[in-house]
C-alpha cells in the first residue's frame, strides 16, 4: 500500500524540512519513499510545498493527485489544496494561521493551534515539528523514535540546545495528538 501526503505552507515555516524529516524516518524504517518539493517559479512569491509518498511497494508516481493526508500550515495552502485530498482523507490544519474551516465535509480535520502550543512549551520556531508530532501520532505511518532519529540526522548528530528544543516541539505535538 502507498500513502501520499502533501505538506504545504509558506517559505520559512519549515514545510520542506517537515516533509523531509518524515520521508527520511520512513526510509529508516525500510519503506519505499519519494519526496518531491515544489520548485522554480512555483515557489517564487513564498509558497512552499512538498509531497511525500510512503509505501511497502515500488512507488510509481511521486505526485499526489489525491493524497490521503494534507498538512496545512496557512490559509492560502488550505484554499489551494483542500479539494485535492481523497474522499475520506485527513486534513491537519494549523488554526493559528488559518481562520477558515475546510469546505470539504467528507474528510476528517484535525485543528491544531500551533502558535499556542509553541508558546506554551517556549519553542516559538518549532511549529513545524509540533505539527509533525501530531501527524505521526494520528497516522502511525512511522514511529516517533524514527522521527526523532531523523531530526537528529538532520542536525548531524549534534545533541545541543537546538536538538532539545526540536525534541520538545516534536513530543508536544505527539502528545497533543494523543490527547485529542
Amino acid at each position: 500500500m502507498i500513502t501520499k501526503t502533501i505538506f504545504a505552507g509558506f517559505g520559512g515555516q519549515g514545510v520542506l524540512m517537515m516533509g523531509y524529516t518524515f520521508a527520511q524516518a520512513a526510509m529508516m524504517e525500510g519503506y519505499h519513499v519519494t519526496y518531491l518539493p515544489s520548485y522554480g517559479a512555483e515557489v517564487r512569491g513564498g509558497a512552499a510545498n512538498c509531497t511525500v509518498a510512503v509505501g511497502d511497494e515500488e512507488i510509481a508516481s511521486p505526485i499526489a493527485s489525491e493524497p490521503e493526508y494534507l498538512v496545512i500550515m496557512n490559509k492560502p495552502s488550505l484554499l489551494t489544496f483542500q479539494n485535492r485530498v481523497t474522499h475520506g482523507g485527513v486534513i491537519f490544519l494549523n488554526t493559528s494561521l488559518a481562520d477558515i474551516k475546510p469546505t470539504r465535509k467528507d474528510v476528517t480535520v484535525h485543528e491544531i493551534p500551533l502558535a499556542e502550543i509553541a508558546e506554551t512549551i517556549g519553542v516559538p520556531r518549532g511549529q513545524n515539528l509540533i505539527m509533525l508530532g501530531a501527524f505521526v501520532r494520528k497516522t502511525s505511518l512511522v514511529s516517533p523514535q524514527s522521527c526523532l532519529k531523523s531530526i537528529e540526522e538532520r542536525m548531524k548528530g549534534k545533541r545541543g540546545a537546538a536538538w532539545e528544543s526540536n525534541r520538545r516541539a516534536f513530543m508536544a505535538g505527539y502528545e497533543w495528538g494523543q490527547s485529542k
Partner: peptide, 10 residues
Amino acid sequence: DGMMGQMMEP
C-alpha cells in the same frame, strides 16, 4: 527530466 532532478528517493 525535471522530476528525476527534483525528486528524492533513498
